[in-house]
Design a protein around this nucleic acid. Sequence first.
DNA 1: TGTTAGCACTCTCGTTACATGAGTGCTAAA
DNA 2: TTTAGCACTCATGTAACGAGAGTGCTAACA
Lengths: 345, 345
Amino acid sequence: MLTNRQQLILSAIVEDYVRMAEPVGSRALAKHEQIQFSPATIRNEMADLEEMGYLAQPHTSAGRVPSQKGYRFYVDHLMPQDPVELDSTAEALRAFFTQRMDEMEQVFREMSTVLSTLTKQTAIVLGPKMYTDKVRKIELIPLAKGRAVAILVTDTGHVEDCTVHLSEDIRVDDVEFIVNVLNDKLVGVPVSKLRSSLYSQLAEELTKRVERYEDVLAIVEELCQVGHREEPVYIGGAANMLKQPEFHDVEKAQPLLSLLEAGHTVTRWLPLEGLGIQVRIGEENPEGPLQDCAVITATYSLADSPVGHIGVLGPTRMDYGRIMKILEYTSRTMTNLLTQRMEGN
Amino acid sequence: MLTNRQQLILSAIVEDYVRMAEPVGSRALAKHEQIQFSPATIRNEMADLEEMGYLAQPHTSAGRVPSQKGYRFYVDHLMPQDPVELDSTAEALRAFFTQRMDEMEQVFREMSTVLSTLTKQTAIVLGPKMYTDKVRKIELIPLAKGRAVAILVTDTGHVEDCTVHLSEDIRVDDVEFIVNVLNDKLVGVPVSKLRSSLYSQLAEELTKRVERYEDVLAIVEELCQVGHREEPVYIGGAANMLKQPEFHDVEKAQPLLSLLEAGHTVTRWLPLEGLGIQVRIGEENPEGPLQDCAVITATYSLADSPVGHIGVLGPTRMDYGRIMKILEYTSRTMTNLLTQRMEGN
DNA sequence: TGTTAGCACTCTCGTTACATGAGTGCTAAA
DNA sequence: TTTAGCACTCATGTAACGAGAGTGCTAACA
C-alpha cells in the first residue's frame, strides 16, 4: 500500500511531531538523518500521504500532522519493534517493584503515580477484580444494637466489609450459628458464585434453626454485593494533562478532568477487551471528550487469568512506542509480583 | 475604624465582585439599591478604602477589587449573619442526608461530590480519625504460607486490614492463641493507645506460650500502624477549579490540581485547628499555589468530640456567606448522622 | 462641610493594517 | 525520477487607532 519511502516519511513525521508538538514541514524532515531526499520530494510524498488520509494540515501553509489513521498505521506497522532499552525509566520501575510493599492498595496507588511520572501522562490503574477469588473466611461482628459489620476475606488476602442490619433481639449464639454455617458452606466458593451458592446451599440449613429468615437473607445479600463490588480505580497525574500543549486551552481540558474525576466510570471507556496491550486512538474512543486522546491499556494477571488493568491516557500525539513498552514491562512485573505473593513469597 | 458608609460600600463591592468576577466601578455601585450616593462620592470612599488596604485596583482605569484584607474584613464583620434560607441548596443537602447509606466510605465520597456540586468549587472531605475509636475485635487469618491478614474492627464499625508475615511453621493453635490474647487484652482500648497498651499488657502473657516472640511483636506493630493510619481523603469537583475565570490560565491551575492530587498532603495545608468554621484567605494559606485561594473548613463530631473535617477550596473571590452556611449545615447534619448511627439508629 | 457634576486623563480591549516567515504546490530543468 | 525555483497562502507579531469604562481632581452646590 505505502511505499517504503512513504512509510519512512510517515514514521519520521509521527516521531517529530510527538517530540516537538508542532506541525512538521518538509524542510525540517529533510534534515533528518535517515532521509536523504530534498524537501521537494518530501513535499510530493506528503501530498500523497495526505490524500490517502494519513496526514492532515492544520492550515494551508503549515507543516503536516499525523491523522488518526496515520497514528494507527504507525502503531500497527512502523513503530520500532525491537526492545530498545528503557534506560533510566526501566531503572525507576525496577526500583519501584523491588520496594517492599505489603499493602496492595498502596501498591496500586503508588503505581499510578509512578506510571504517570514516567509517562508524563495520566495513569489509570484498576485494582484486581475479585471475581476469581475464593472465600477464605466470613465474619460477622455485632456493634451497637441492630447493627453489625460483615467481613469477607478472600484467599488472596482481599478484605471487604459492609454494614448489615440485624433484628435488635438477635441472640449471640444465633450470630455464632449463622457465621458458622456461612463459613461451612461458603468457604472456597468464588465470590462471583456467592449468590448462586447462597440459594442452593444455605436456604434449608438456616431455616432449621433461625426463625428470622429474612434477617439472614439480608445479610447474605449484602455479602453478595460485596463480592460484586466494583474494582477500585486509581488515577495518577491527572494534572499532567494540563502540561500537554493540546490542553492548554481550558475548554478542552475541563471535560477530560471531569471524566477522570468520575473514577468509577472509567470502565465504560477503557479498552478492556482482549489481552495484551490495547491502543485506542482518537475517534476510536467512545466518549466525546476522548476524541482527541489516545488510551493505551494492558492487563495484569494472577495465576494465568487476567485480573486487572493498567492504562495511560494522553493526547493522540503521544510516544506510543515508549509508553507501550513501559506498560508492557509494568504489567509483566505486576503479574510476577502478584503471583509470587500468592505462592507465599 | 471604617465608617458605616465605607462598610456598606466595601460590602457591596465584595458581593458584586463575587457575582460578576469583574472589577466593580463606581457607576455600577451607584445603581445598587442600598446605595444612594453619586458615583463621585463612591469614588472618594473607594480611594480611601484603597489607601487603607481594603481594595485594590488591577490597573489605573479599572474598577476596584477586594484585597485579602478586604475579604477578611467582610468575612469578620460585614457578612450577613442571619440565617438566610438556603433555598434549593438546603433541599439538596437534606435529600442527600436522608438517603439511606450504609457504607460510610460511600457517604464521604458522595458528600464530596454533592458539596462540590452545590458550591461549584472543590470540596475536600476528611474521613474520621479513628483515634478515639475503641478496639472491638481483632482477627488474624492465615493465607498462603507465611502470610496472614490481620483485621481490626472498631466499635464504630470501622474495619482496617493489613498483611502480616508469620513464620512458616507457626501452628494453627498458636494463631488461635495469639488472637485470643490480643482480643482479651486489647478490646476496648482506644486505637490511639494501642502501642502503649501493647507493652504494658501483652509482653509477658505471650512469652508464656509462644516461642517466636518477634513474630508476634511484628504482628502487633502492624496493627498499631493500622490504628495510626491516615484518615482517608475524598476530593470532589477538582475540575470545577477550571471553571473559575481566575484559573482559566492553565499556569495558575496546574499547580493547584497537582496539590490536590497528592490527596494525603491536604492535612498540611487545611486549617484544622480549632472548632467551628475556619476561613483562610489568600496569603493566610501556607502553600504557594494557594496564595490566591480561600479555604473554608468545618469539623464534624461524634459524641461531642470532633473526628473529621469537611472543606471547600476556591479562588479568594468566593461566596463566603453561602459556602460557610452550607458547610455549617453539612457539618451539623453529619454530626447527627454519625451520632445516630453510633446509638444504633 | 459634605456631596455632586463636569471634565480631562489613563488604560484595556478589539479592530485593522501590515510586514515577516514558514511552508506549500506547481512547473521546468537536470 | 528527482530537484531547484518561484509564486502563493496563511499564521503570527507589531503598531496604530478608536471606543469604552473608569478614575482623580476641581469647582459648584446644599
